[in-house]
Simulated assay, not measured.
Amino acid sequence: METGPSITPRSMKQLSQIYLLLLLITGLTGCTTIGYYTQAITGHFGLMTRAEPVPKVIGNAETPADIRDKLALALEARQFAREQLALPVEDAFLEYVQLERPWVVVNLVAVPEFSLEPHRWCYPFVGCQAYRGYFSLEDAREEQARFRANGYDTFIGGVTAYSTLGWFDDPLHSGFTRLSEDRMVALMFHELAHRVVYIAEDTTFNESFATSVELEGLRQWLSQRGEADRFDEALARLQRRNQTLDLVRAATSGLEALYQQSDSLAEDTLRARKQAILSRLAEDYRELSETWTEPGPFGPAPVTLNNANLALFRQYNQFVPGFRQLLADHGNDFPAFYRAVEELGQQPPDQRTAALERLSQRFEENL
Rank of each mutant, 00 (worst) to 15 (best):
T38K: 04
T38Y: 04
T38S: 03
Q39H: 14
Q39K: 13
A40P: 02
A40N: 08
I41T: 07
T42V: 12
T42P: 00
G43P: 01
G43L: 01
H44G: 03
H44F: 15
F45D: 00
F45I: 07
F45N: 04
G46M: 03
M48L: 15
M48S: 09
M48A: 13
T49H: 00
R50S: 11
A51L: 05
A51R: 03
E52S: 14
P53G: 10
V54K: 06
V54E: 04
P55C: 11
P55N: 08
P55L: 09
K56G: 02
K56H: 10
V57S: 07
I58E: 02
I58H: 05
I58F: 05
N60H: 12
N60S: 14
A61S: 14
A61M: 07
A61C: 05
E62M: 13
T63Y: 08
T63P: 07
A65C: 08
D66Q: 15
I67M: 07
I67D: 06
R68V: 12
D69W: 00
K70T: 07
K70Y: 01
K70P: 02
A72V: 03
A72D: 07
A74V: 11
A74Y: 02
L75G: 04
L75N: 04
E76V: 12
A77F: 06
A77H: 05
A77V: 12
R78E: 03
Q79S: 10
Q79P: 00
Q79Y: 07
F80P: 00
F80K: 02
A81D: 08
R82P: 00
R82I: 04
R82T: 09
E83D: 15
E83I: 11
Q84P: 01
Q84N: 13
Q84V: 07
L85T: 11
L85W: 08
A86S: 15
A86C: 09
L87Y: 04
L87P: 02
L87M: 03
P88S: 13
P88T: 15
P88Y: 12
P88K: 14
P88R: 13
P88Q: 13
V89Q: 01
V89A: 04
V89K: 02
D91Q: 13
D91E: 09
D91T: 12
D91H: 13
A92L: 01
A92F: 01
F93L: 08
L94T: 15
E95N: 09
E95H: 14
E95D: 09
E95F: 04
Y96F: 10
Y96H: 02
V97F: 00
V97I: 08
Q98Y: 00
Q98W: 00
L99R: 10
L99D: 01
E100S: 15
E100D: 15
R101E: 06
R101H: 11
V104P: 00
V104Y: 00
V106E: 05
N107H: 06
N107Y: 04
N107Q: 03
L108A: 12
L108G: 11
L108D: 03
V109G: 04
V109E: 00
A110Q: 01
A110W: 01
V111D: 04
P112C: 13
E113N: 11
E113D: 10
E113I: 01
S115F: 09
S115W: 05
L116H: 12
E117A: 15
E117F: 08
E117V: 14
P118F: 09
H119M: 12
R120E: 11
R120G: 04
C122V: 05
C122N: 03
C122H: 08
C122G: 08
C122D: 07
Y123N: 04
Y123G: 06
F125R: 10
F125G: 05
F125E: 00
V126N: 05
V126Q: 03
